Simulated scan of single mutants.
Amino acid sequence: MSLPAPDDPPDGPEIAIVGIGFDVGTHPSRIGARGGPGHIRQQSRLLRPHLADRGPLDLGGIVDWGDVRLTPGRLDSLLDDATPALAEVVASGAVPVVLGGDGTATFPVLRALAAAHGPLAVVHFDAHTDAYPDAPPGADAGAEPLTTATTFTRAVDEGLVDPARSIHLGVRGTTFQTEVCAHARRLGYAVRTTDELVALAPAELTDLLVTHTAGRPVHLSWDMDVFDPAAAPGVATPEWGGLSAREGLAFLRALEPLDIVGADVATVSPPHDLGGTTGLLAARVVLEIVHTLRAGRGARRA
């Protein structure tokens, strides 16, 4: 959206858009989420800065921080390079809104935010929990414990999140393992399937999340596969039966009362994105998050 780069040194931005162009490169058929940040930026040129049904949005105080310099496919680079880069954003006083990247790109964001704010309440919209057991069937004995499927398992292990105040929303579809939702619940997370989510009105979701996250700063993690592939085909692992674009945007607007200290938008895969529709919808999600952050902070100050 032609946002400015930060000053050098950064001069107190309120919100920073940050790209983490990373995927682990182990998906059996869809590699490409590493190109997500640039793709979302490209499609954002089609957006206007004002949301007609929500009033004008002043984009002052928002910067595009650029992309973290790292090597896609190397987890050591993700953890060693992205964590301090995000810590720098947080230290500037800005709320990071991260463009992924696959689900592992969320992990260094959680590390940086938890170091500043303590254990987080995670509100995770995704077709998958990403809180699977450590070793999926058939995995090598020395398999890397951090994968796109275990991001939120590792986050509990490291004390980055408070699972009792965290929730996975929109879960559905096929899995390689049984009882994945049960495992997430054993870790302490709440889990709502897509059917349970769409049964809620946005105001009911607001009440649920305000109560569930009470007392904790919130990280919002929005995986684009929470949308139905009819709305967002260009994702790493599409699952039929997801949210429509209208439903997803309405649920985003229900998050204004939450104390959101960081957010990420994950798993846009440009090689699989027909006509750029997923990238454009992801850019709109980012704009909605920015508006939600602004509106929520304004309400709390009032």
Results as ranks from 00 to 15, higher is better:
140 D>R: 14
142 G>K: 09
142 G>H: 11
143 A>G: 14
143 A>I: 14
143 A>L: 12
143 A>C: 12
143 A>K: 10
144 E>A: 14
146 L>S: 06
146 L>F: 07
147 T>F: 05
147 T>G: 07
147 T>D: 03
147 T>V: 11
148 T>F: 11
148 T>L: 15
149 A>W: 02
149 A>Q: 08
150 T>H: 00
151 T>H: 01
151 T>R: 06
151 T>N: 01
152 F>T: 01
152 F>P: 00
153 T>M: 04
154 R>Q: 11
154 R>Y: 06
155 A>L: 05
155 A>S: 12
156 V>F: 05
156 V>P: 00
156 V>R: 01
157 D>I: 11
157 D>T: 14
158 E>S: 12
158 E>R: 13
158 E>C: 13
158 E>D: 15
158 E>T: 11
159 G>T: 08
159 G>R: 08
159 G>Q: 10
159 G>E: 07
160 L>F: 08
160 L>P: 01
161 V>K: 00
161 V>C: 05
162 D>H: 05
164 A>M: 08
165 R>Y: 00
165 R>W: 00
167 I>A: 07
168 H>W: 02
168 H>Y: 03
168 H>S: 02
169 L>W: 01
169 L>R: 03
170 G>Y: 00
170 G>S: 04
171 V>P: 00
171 V>T: 09
173 G>C: 05
173 G>F: 03
173 G>A: 05
173 G>K: 01
173 G>R: 04
174 T>E: 13
174 T>P: 11
175 T>S: 15
175 T>R: 13
175 T>D: 12
175 T>G: 08
175 T>P: 02
176 F>N: 13
177 Q>F: 07
177 Q>I: 14
178 T>K: 13
178 T>M: 12
179 E>W: 11
179 E>M: 11
180 V>G: 02
180 V>Y: 09
180 V>M: 04
180 V>R: 06
181 C>Q: 06
182 A>L: 09
182 A>G: 09
183 H>M: 02
183 H>Q: 01
184 A>M: 05
184 A>I: 05
184 A>T: 02
184 A>P: 01
184 A>D: 03
185 R>Q: 13
185 R>Y: 00
186 R>A: 12
186 R>M: 09
186 R>F: 05
186 R>I: 07
187 L>V: 10
188 G>S: 06
189 Y>S: 09
189 Y>M: 08
189 Y>A: 08
189 Y>H: 11
189 Y>D: 07
190 A>W: 09
191 V>F: 13
192 R>W: 14
192 R>L: 15
192 R>Q: 15
194 T>V: 12
194 T>N: 14
195 D>L: 15
195 D>S: 15
196 E>A: 15
196 E>R: 14
196 E>H: 10
196 E>Q: 15
196 E>C: 11
200 L>N: 02
201 A>S: 09
202 P>V: 08
203 A>P: 04
203 A>K: 10
